[in-house]
Design a binder for these strands. Structure first.
Lengths: 158, 158
DNA sequence: AGTGCATCCTCTAGCGACTAGAGGATCAAG
DNA sequence: CTTGATCCTCTAGTCGCTAGAGGATGCACT
């Protein structure tokens, strides 16, 4: 880490060892908000940290690393449960790599599906708004399309 | 509609007029689930329907059309609030078309942004999984990338 | 010492758009 | 009558946070 370690407030005389972080310092260092850190702890993604006599959380370097991992995975769109699995794999380096690969591959497929879906949506919306742009003010194409059931995007009528 | 109208159960003798639908029939006809129809009524997207003596909801053709409109708009990804606005516009044909156009255009932009975001995610995940596919079993690239904070997708570290 | 502000704590509830029962009533067929 | 399907209201949950409320602690300044 290129940033200097921050302690709880100014360093109290002997209260905390060097490198110990308050939750706020951890949040600033990782970009994860304080309530989100507490949330991750509550759902087990982060271990319960040491506490001060006044019950303030104290974090070390390993916590920084673990939270960075969590954040990175979340940024990539992995669900909390997938992150949990990935963390478990990372905690056991002797385990097979196949599970991590599978999680990543499944997630990749999911994203590709979502992209295709959104592109279909975009295409339909673009068509509708383009027809409006031709100046047909008298009848509103957007409302007309929504009202015409035969133009419904889905086909699963029961 | 090409499907025959369905009444509540078998036609009771004189209990319901032809064309009247139970909530289950409406759900089957529109593809919107029964609880979702109740939800839409509770949030005001659908008017409160007539009831039987035993408090069962009774729907007519207008309800079918309105729900189809709602579903179509939701399928296109409009939020519930946007759907509400579109319904209001549809209920007042003399109003300006500009609002519907604006809603559609804003939504189109939003979808395009989401597509771009997902494509960035896809690209990064594809890179990670491709490196795994090269057979580097000894060190797991997925876990390694997630653990390496310098490879973090986002840049907003504070 | 007091003051004021920032930070921390737990707890509750909310967001959006549904969804899943629980418990009870009605309906219709056999 | 029994049975199963359908309907009703109500509550709470899903997912991943997020926003306070109310209170305590820490720290700098006067």
């Amino acid at each position: 880490m290129s940033e200097p370690a921050q302690t709880i407030g100014a360093p109290p005389s002997g209260a905390l060892p060097t490198g110990a972080l308050s939750i706020g310092a951890l949040a600033r260092q990782t970009g994860v908000k304080v309530p989100t850190i507490r949330f991750y702890e509550s759902i087990g993604l982060l271990p319960r940290p040491e506490r001060t006599a006044s019950e303030r959380r104290v974090y070390d370097r390993r916590a920084v690393q673990r939270l960075a991992f969590v954040r990175h995975a979340r940024d990539l769109g992995f669900s909390v449960e997938a992150v949990r699995s990935l963390l478990d794999l990372a905690d056991h380096p002797d385990q097979s790599c196949a599970d991590a690969d599978r999680l990543a591959a499944e997630h990749l497929e999911e994203i590709e599906r979502k992209i295709a879906q959104l592109q279909a949506l975009r295409d339909e919306l673009a068509r509708v708004t383009a027809e409006c742009a031709r100046g047909r003010v008298a009848d509103c194409r957007v409302i007309e399309v929504l009202s015409d059931h035969s133009l419904c995007l889905t086909r699963d009528h029961h």
